Amino acid sequence: MDAPKLHPILDRPYEYDLGDFRYHIDREDPGASFIEMTLCKNSDSLRLRFWQPINLKIEEGFPQATRGMVFYDRTADGLEDIKVEVADFESSWGAITFCARSVEKIG
C-alpha cells in the first residue's frame, strides 16, 4: 500500500505550535461547520480553516504542542466529504486528529 500523499496547504506542520483552536458547529448546515487552528512558528502565525470536520479526537495532554502533526491529501480516496486528514505521525501526547471536506488559509 502506498504512503498517503501530503497536503500542500502547509509544509512541515509538525514544526508549528498550536496557538488557537476553535470548533464552530452549524447544526442547520453541517457543511458550514469548521475547525479553525492558528499555528505559530517563531514570530509567524498562520490560520487554517478546515470545513465540515468529522471524527475529531483530542488526546490527553492537550493543549501541549503536538510535534507530529501532519496533513494528508485524501482526495484520491474517492470519499465525497473527506479530502484532508489531520493526523499525528509520532503518536505524541495531546495529538489532534480529524478529517475534513477541505482546508484553506485565512487572513
Rank of each mutant, 00 (worst) to 15 (best):
V86N: 03
K57F: 02
C99D: 07
R27C: 11
D44E: 15
D44I: 09
H7T: 06
L48R: 03
N42V: 13
I25A: 08
D2E: 12
D88Q: 04
L48C: 06
A65T: 10
D88M: 06
S91L: 07
D77S: 01
V84W: 03
T75Y: 12
W93D: 12
L79S: 12
L48W: 11
V70N: 00
M37S: 05
G107W: 08
I35R: 01
R22Y: 13
W93F: 04
K5A: 08
K105G: 06
S33Q: 12
R27H: 12
P4D: 10
V70C: 06
G31K: 09
L56C: 08
F34M: 00
L10T: 05
S92L: 00
K57C: 11
H24K: 09
F21L: 14
Q64P: 01
S92Q: 10
R49W: 09
C40S: 10
G68V: 04
K5L: 11
N55E: 08
I82E: 15
K41G: 01
A95W: 01
N55L: 14
N55H: 15
E80A: 15
Q64V: 12
I82Q: 12
P8Q: 03
Q64A: 10
D77H: 10
Q52P: 03
I35F: 06
E85F: 03
D2Y: 02
E90S: 05
R74W: 06
E28K: 13
A95F: 04
A95Y: 01
T66A: 03
D44Q: 13
E59V: 02
A95G: 07
E15H: 05
F50C: 08
R27E: 15
P8V: 00
W51L: 13
G107K: 14
D20K: 11
R22G: 02
N42A: 15
D77L: 10
S33W: 04
P63Q: 04
R49V: 07
D20S: 14
R12K: 15
M37P: 01
R49K: 11
F71R: 02
D44R: 11
Y72L: 13
F34W: 15
P4T: 00
E90H: 09
L18S: 09
I82D: 08
Y23N: 05
Y23M: 10
E15A: 13
P4R: 05
Q52D: 07
D17E: 14
V86L: 15
D26C: 12
D73K: 00
K83M: 01
H7A: 02
Y16D: 01
K41F: 02
F71V: 07
S33R: 06
R67W: 01
N42Y: 12
F89S: 00
E15Y: 11
E60V: 09
D2V: 01
R101K: 14
N55A: 14
V70F: 04
P13S: 05
T75N: 09
T75C: 11
D20Q: 10
L79M: 14
I96L: 06
S102I: 02
T66Y: 01
D88I: 02
P13L: 05
T97C: 08
